[in-house]
Write a protein that binds this DNA or RNA. Structure first.
Lengths: 234, 234
DNA sequence: CGCAGCCTTGAAGTAAATCAAGGATTGTGG
DNA sequence: CCACAATCCTTGATTTACTTCAAGGCTGCG
């Protein structure tokens, strides 16, 4: 059912044998269009999703429609594995692009984990890397200025997309709109536009037509104060 | 060795039987003074700490000394259980006040969990509530203005301290300095001061001599757009 | 005592939000 | 096919939020 070898991105951290056991647990794969609300905050979930292709976002929203993206998922990320121990999520999950996903039924997953301590710890670990990413988003949102924050976000995306095999080059597909970036970086869409222009004019990177061209990766990482150690070797 | 019944705060979520098994795993308890760096980012850890009394902070820092508090722990929180699956942490852990802590050796913990799926899931769940808190700090830092952000932070503290039994009243001990609050809320210390004055003059709450007096809890929660559901019933 | 850290306030400067408007693109229904 | 609505990208002008700088008072401490 699941063709992918799951050896990239975050799943690349897992042992070969765990990856194979995990593959066998996939209930089905599905395709979903862009901009779909796939799981609203508070709704009980009985399955978790592994993203195979595309981008998904996780959002905390208030009543008035202001919302903050609190995580973005790239290929080979579990999207909402947090729901396995928690039962439901505290945030919304949306597809940002057309996506391909693998579904893991919670009952199936739980039964497999019950007798498999190594796999349990491995999946636990994956969810804690999510938590580490959340922490560094907190740092970015709380302490970095708009220019540094945008650079930091783009640096993380560059790093993670490369590890996921979605990019080998200095240019890759990053189909995020400026409003998406502003949701992620805690700024207004207008300011996201100006900051992108500043990065472009500084010769660091250019985002155009859903592709990010990095002309000075060293400068991007430096401007964004990006160090990859919080990703635990993803 | 461990006298506490562990039935409050986040640990109150655990089943009675799990709490008792957990108590038996405590290696030792210790007292540590205020403002101690207890575990620096990157250092391999072979034990995790449960906070019994006091407050601890978790920080992401850059080179220049700018730092963002990314979590605060109150009584009966695990402080760094993330280190069990991860091996080391991506952030610093410091005591904010004098603290009393229970130590859980990772080898002991891991052996106990190996044959105890329920307890494993329960502890996993606790670490994911940490992650949910991180997400809502991201929302606060990215989307709320200074006044709302401070109110949101204080509302969360009020809520969690009450659940931890550290407060039954509209006034309780919150021994955080204004620089601490500014680290947590992503603003300058000067601005933290002004925002606290604004909350005081609005008749919402007063922080003085390490005690928070809440005169209008409804107003505090409303100003901070605080809803407690992301705490999963802590 | 003298130092350090904290709390407080005013004044000045900077960063970012908001308001406003025009152009480009895409999808939609007539 | 075209009118249109919606969304996005872009830029300028204005306003607001916040930082930084500066200074004084307070407390606790070696």
């Amino acid at each position: 059912m699941l063709q992918d070898t799951l050896d990239r991105g975050m799943l690349g951290l897992l042992d070969q044998s765990i990856r194979e056991r995990l593959r066998g647990l996939c209930t089905e794969t599905r395709n979903v269009g862009a901009r779909q609300l796939m799981s609203p905050a508070g709704k009980p979930l009985n399955a978790s999703l592994l993203l195979l292709d595309g981008l998904m976002g996780r959002y905390v929203s208030d009543r008035q429609g202001r919302r903050q993206m609190v995580a973005i998922q790239v290929a080979y990320d579990f999207v909402d594995l947090h729901a396995l121990p928690l039962g439901h999520l505290d945030h919304d999950v949306e597809s940002l692009t057309d996506v391909r996903i693998a579904v893991f039924d919670h009952d199936v997953l739980r039964e497999a984990l019950r007798g498999d301590f190594e796999m349990t710890m491995a999946l636990w670990r994956l969810t804690l890397i999510d938590a580490a990413i959340h922490r560094h988003w907190g740092f970015r949102l709380g302490r970095l200025r708009a220019l540094a924050g945008m650079a930091n976000f783009l640096a993380e995306m560059d790093y993670r997309m490369r590890r996921a095999g979605s990019s080998q080059d200095t240019e890759f597909s990053l189909p995020l709109t400026q409003p998406d970036l502003s949701d992620a970086c805690g700024m207004s869409p207008v300011h996201a536009n100006r900051v992108l222009r500043e990065l472009r004019e500084a010769g660091i990177c250019t985002l155009r037509d859903g592709r990010l061209a990095i002309t000075d990766r060293e400068g991007l990482y430096r401007t964004g104060e990006f160090k990859s150690d919080y990703l635990y070797g993803i």
